[in-house]
């Protein structure tokens, strides 16, 4: 007798849609997926509406792949709804796992984002200074928009999450692995990140660490030098997030001549990705073992070579990091954060 088919759902919150496309990038394997599972909700590919999801019984969905960060009231509402309707909830991709690139907006708040996007941007034409309101009266009635929060959150900061699939977007191999693990009913204990335990360096063909200890004295931006394609980028003074980033991508960016920017998230044993990278960099610069060689001024000079440390070390992980966001006064003039510390 044929096994009863599983029910899958895919949803995007504050995302770009790349995670959805990464599911389609498994190509003809999608046909195997629909052999074992019915997809019951998937806005990018199907016409099922929010009200249809509301009508589903609790835990109707076996596995929900949730991508995108929690940026608005609607994102939060759907996270809570899909949590209730799903047996297993997977944070799929860097945004729902760590906040992702949209999480960089935690350098600002709603007021600053609205000002820049709707009023002060160089290409913005908005003579009446209109910004989005949660409710607006039109002559036929009233229209509503979800509230835009001050702080971007991860899915796990919003609801209980069962598993995580890292990547921006997750690599095809990771997606296939996750789907096969589910189909076989071999999911690991709750809370697992469905990716190898290795770092990007462990997968990188340029990794020199096995040969000899590397040491650098200068940091370059990617356009300042033409790197030797056979040498570790860090060894050449280019900041590469490989040592602090979980693998599963087979060092794809580095193989294309670009440094890792950290989309795979932290390694299993050092959950603060940015701090792990800063620590790795300190030892590469010899600040740990040979610190007597350096004066305070030398160190300052070295550190000043790192442009935009926040964007470099936390490109994908600001909301899930210890930093979470830039501390700012809220609209009532207080520093009270809108997230749990």
């Amino acid at each position: 007798m044929a096994k009863e088919k599983l029910k899958f759902a895919f949803y995007w919150a504050a995302s770009c849609g790349g995670c959805e496309i990464s599911v389609l990038d498994i190509n003809e394997k999608i046909l195997e997926v629909v052999q074992v599972a019915d997809i019951v909700f998937w806005p990018v590919a199907m016409d099922i509406k929010y009200k249809d999801v509301e009508k589903m019984s609790d835990e109707y969905i076996d596995v929900c792949f949730f991508n995108g960060a929690i940026r608005t009231e609607e994102n939060e509402k759907l996270a809570k709804l899909l949590r209730k309707k799903s047996k297993v909830l997977i944070a799929y991709g860097s945004c729902s796992y760590m906040g992702g690139i949209p999480g960089l907006a935690n350098v600002a708040n709603r007021k600053e984002v609205f000002e820049k996007a709707y009023l002060k941007n160089i290409s913005t034409v908005n003579p009446n200074g209109v910004t989005p309101k949660t409710r607006v009266k039109v002559k036929e009635g009233e229209l509503e928009l979800p509230e835009f929060y001050d702080t971007v959150k991860t899915l796990a900061q919003t609801v209980d999450v069962d598993y995580y699939v890292p990547g921006c977007p997750p690599q095809v191999e990771l997606t296939i692995n996750a789907l096969e693990t589910i189909a076989k009913g071999e999911l690991p204990p709750k809370g697992a990140v469905l990716a190898p335990l290795k770092s990007v360096c462990d997968e990188c063909p340029l990794n020199p660490l096995k040969k000899e200890k590397i040491q650098i004295s200068e940091i370059h931006r990617i356009y300042e030098i033409i790197p030797d394609p056979n040498k570790c980028l860090l060894e050449q003074g280019i900041i590469c997030m490989g040592p602090a980033t979980r693998g599963g991508c087979n060092a794809r960016c580095i193989k294309a001549g670009m440094p890792c920017t950290g989309c795979g998230g932290p390694c299993p044993n050092s959950p603060e990705q940015g701090a792990a990278m800063i620590s790795a960099l300190a030892s590469l610069l010899g600040l740990e073992e040979e610190k007597e060689k350096y004066t305070e001024a030398d160190i300052e000079k070295l550190v000043a070579q790192i442009k935009d440390p926040l964007g470099t070390f936390y490109m994908y992980s600001l909301p899930s990091s210890l930093l979470k966001r830039r501390v700012m006064k809220n609209e009532s003039g207080h520093y009270k954060p809108d997230y749990k510390t």
């Binding site: 984002v113 820049k116 996007a117």
Partner: peptide
Amino acid sequence: PELRGFERFCVGRKAED
């Protein structure tokens, strides 16, 4: 019903990013 604010958070990032 969405906005992520690239206009704001790209400010301060490295041009080459």
